[in-house]
């Protein structure tokens, strides 16, 4: 990819914007189409685009594979943890009324935000993990076969 200067410059510009868009989708999911699942995928796409246009090593300098593995687990932990915290407040599992007892619907907002964050982190981690697993495998066939 050394000679594709247009691709390289455009990708450099776009990667930041894609990450920004992912955050918008993540935290604006209450108001418009979007949420953790979509945001996680878009976030992963930013790193994947970088890895495809430059190379895997450079992408893994920004987001090492072991970090991606941990993100995948962390998201599920955030999700489950939200439920456990609501139980600690004396409510049932995943009852977000716990987070603001006087005003249930505000509690719901906090709960939805936390849970969607968990989903987003897991999906980012899993998509990157899968991508890294596939691309770090050494091909056993030559490039001439294309």
């Amino acid at each position: 990819m050394q000679h594709h200067i247009v691709l390289r410059v455009v990708t450099k510009l776009l990667c930041g914007l894609i990450v920004l868009f992912a955050f918008y989708v993540q935290f604006h999911g209450d108001y418009s189409p979007g949420g953790g699942f979509q945001a996680g995928v878009i976030m992963a796409v930013a790193f994947i685009a970088y890895a495809v246009v430059f190379n895997l090593e450079m992408a893994q300098k920004v987001m090492p594979a072991r970090v991606a593995h941990k993100l995948a687990a962390l998201g599920v932990l955030i999700y489950g943890g939200t439920g456990v915290v609501s139980m600690l407040f004396g409510y049932t599992f995943l009852d977000y009324g716990a987070f603001q007892p006087g005003h249930p619907s505000h509690g719901q907002h906090w709960g939805i935000l936390a849970v969607e964050l968990g989903v987003g982190v897991t999906v980012t981690g899993v998509m990157l993990t899968i991508f890294y697993a596939f691309t770090s495998r050494v091909p056993s066939i030559s490039d001439e076969e294309w």
Binding site: F37, V41, I130
Partner: peptide, 9 residues
């Protein structure tokens, strides 16, 4: 929506 993401996994 959830099924699509599980589907890709």
């Amino acid at each position: 929506l959830t099924a699509i993401v599980v589907g890709i996994a």
